[in-house]
């Protein structure tokens, strides 16, 4: 056997450092990360990176910060498996490996000049935070902006400080609901679809961006179509367990599409009839 180093291997890792961490909820933790060589990851909102812990494994995680922040990026990670649980234990200053960014994100250029209806369910707020912070930082380029956020219980609310700020801003409409309230909750109670009928939109010039658990999509999309938003103005992001990110390993395949390369953000019109998608 002979052996050669592959400099341009797509499995090579970029070194990165954890700049800060913050516990957001019982299960979700926030990480601010910078590539060690000063390089930028240069992502689009909606794209994901592979987070690598040597000896443990890799996981695909959405970038949750605005691409306008150039010297670092954020991720929000739920502890569910081996890699994510180990990641939660890492402290500021730890080195991790990064591959990516991968896939197609939200079509920002196409969204500019239009109204936006952004709908997040649970952890779906993480990838959408990348879009929201971008939109708010370039607020002038967009029309009206609506943000609807729903989660199961108040204790699962992510990015509380930012939610607070959004609700106070006059240049956007923000509404939030929980499936089950607790004693301190004074806001809306009910699934996220209950918020949609009350949103005042002009359907023809509104683009919707939705990220949430699969069960949410069917109900939310039905409401959006009821509102009159055209199918090709609805974008959504799919969760799959990508292993390679290069459209090869087959894990994330939805019929003839690879979520890691052709997605994870898809136009609803293009995938609406695909079984295995939802």
């Amino acid at each position: 056997m002979e052996k050669v180093v592959i400099i341009n291997s797509s499995y090579r890792l970029k070194k990165a450092k954890i700049l800060s961490t913050k516990k957001l909820t019982e299960k979700e933790k926030f990480f601010e990360i910078a590539l060690s060589d000063g390089e930028r990851i240069d992502h689009e909102p909606g794209q994901f990176v592979m987070i690598s812990l040597l000896g443990i494994g890799e996981v695909p995680i959405s970038v949750c910060s605005s691409p306008l922040i150039r010297d670092s990026f954020d991720i929000c990670v739920r502890a569910v498996g081996k890699v994510t649980n180990s990641l939660h234990k890492l402290k500021r200053g730890s080195e991790i490996g990064i591959r990516g960014p991968y896939g197609k994100g939200f079509p920002i250029r196409m969204l500019e000049g239009n109204d936006l209806l952004i709908i997040a369910g649970g952890l779906g707020l993480a990838p959408l935070r990348s879009l929201i912070t971008y939109v708010l930082d370039s607020r002038r380029d967009f029309g009206r902006v609506h943000i609807l956020f729903g989660c199961k219980e108040p204790k699962e609310l992510l990015f509380r400080d930012e939610l607070e700020q959004w609700s106070e801003r006059t240049d956007l409409h923000y509404a939030c609901t929980v499936d089950r309230a607790d004693a301190d909750w004074a806001g809306n109670v009910g699934v996220i679809t209950t918020l949609i009928p009350g949103v005042d939109i002009e359907p023809a010039r509104t683009f919707a961006a939705i990220v949430g658990p699969p069960v949410m999509y069917n109900f939310v999309i039905k409401e959006l179509l009821n509102k009159g938003i055209p199918e090709n103005q609805i974008y959504l992001s799919f969760e799959r367990h990508m292993k390679c990110g290069n459209g090869k390993c087959g894990r994330c395949q939805i019929q003839n599409l690879y979520c890691c390369q052709d997605g994870p953000v898809f136009n609803y019109e293009k995938i609406k009839n695909m079984s295995e998608a939802f």
Binding site: M1, I6, R12, S52, L54
Partner: peptide
């Protein structure tokens, strides 16, 4: 395993 120092290679 601490950190991200890894070499990509192929055996053939």
């Amino acid at each position: 395993a601490k950190g991200a120092n890894a070499e990509a290679s192929v055996e053939y």
